[in-house]
Simulated assay, not measured.
Amino acid sequence: MTAPGRGAPPGGSGRRVLVTGGASGLGAALVSAFAARGDRVIATDLAADAPDTLPDGVGYLCLDVTSDDDWASALAHVEERWRGLDVLVNNAGIAAGGRIDVLTVEDWRRITEINLFGVVRGCRVFTPLFKRQGSGHLVNVASMAGLVHPPVMSSYNAVKAAVVALSETLQHELAPYGVTTSVVCPSFFRTNLASSLSGSDPEVEASAVRLIDGSRLSADEVAARVLRGVDRRRPVILTDRAGRTAVRAKRWLRPLYDRAMRGVAEGVRRRVDPTSTAPDHTTEKA
């Protein structure tokens, strides 16, 4: 058993890792990056069978992150196969965008069940194991949208901010048990996440697709930066310069940040609702 507070050695020394949403996108890149360093990895996803793209030696489980039974099976599997786990990566999620008056309550329920409660379930199921071990690392994949909140992304921003808050809470709550918690907050990068867009505001979602497809960052590059952050046990892992700039602007240059966000909102209004008339805010009321 690993000594409390020390955890498995970093840097690819045979850690036991489970990655949700590991069949594609960032999840697949993380699976490959962990495996390439010699870590023992299980990828999970919705398909019944393992994808052909998994690296040699990587295990696979069918896991729906909204299913309590699937999570219980995953826990039983790693306990039987490995007698424990060193790193749980809660990565599975869907993309979403939309204006507050266009998104339906069902849109909100779907993204909350997957992007928030999927992470909550993973943390709840594996925390007792980590406590017994006296070690373990929860890695929750949120988004830059959890730290800065652009317009027309209310549901996505809200659930990702909740994942950030959950992770910060667990950083403090589980530290006395030797358990580390990190939250990953990447900006847009090239991935198939756009394929999960299925909300009620396709005009706005088209903008998200353009941002994802137009990014210079690949999922493999983001995964490499995530692993460095995990090795260093960083509580918040920012993967790109754009994200770090946005966070600093919100904290230290708030008027400029607000102006930029309102500019984005005005651009959306002109594109999707060109016949509306913006109110005149140039004259202050007495």
Rank of each mutant, 00 (worst) to 15 (best):
K160W: 12
G243C: 03
D231N: 01
G267S: 10
G25Q: 15
M1P: 14
I94F: 05
G199M: 07
E113H: 13
M1A: 14
V179G: 13
D64R: 08
R190Q: 08
R81A: 10
D56N: 08
V226S: 01
T169I: 05
D86S: 11
R248I: 13
G57E: 12
D70M: 13
V209D: 05
G11P: 00
L103I: 12
V163L: 12
R83S: 15
R225M: 05
F117W: 15
R233Q: 11
L253S: 05
G178W: 12
G11W: 00
P10Q: 00
G98F: 03
E113F: 00
V105G: 10
S198A: 01
V139I: 03
A74R: 03
D70R: 01
D39M: 00
N140L: 03
V41Y: 15
F34A: 01
R110E: 09
V31R: 13
I94D: 10
E205C: 06
A208H: 10
S200M: 03
A50Y: 11
C123G: 12
N192S: 15
G267E: 11
P4Q: 14
L85F: 07
T282G: 14
L147Y: 02
A33G: 08
L18A: 13
L197D: 10
V272T: 11
R99V: 15
V272A: 00
V17W: 11
D280F: 15
Y257D: 10
S196W: 06
S167W: 10
R110H: 06
G5K: 13
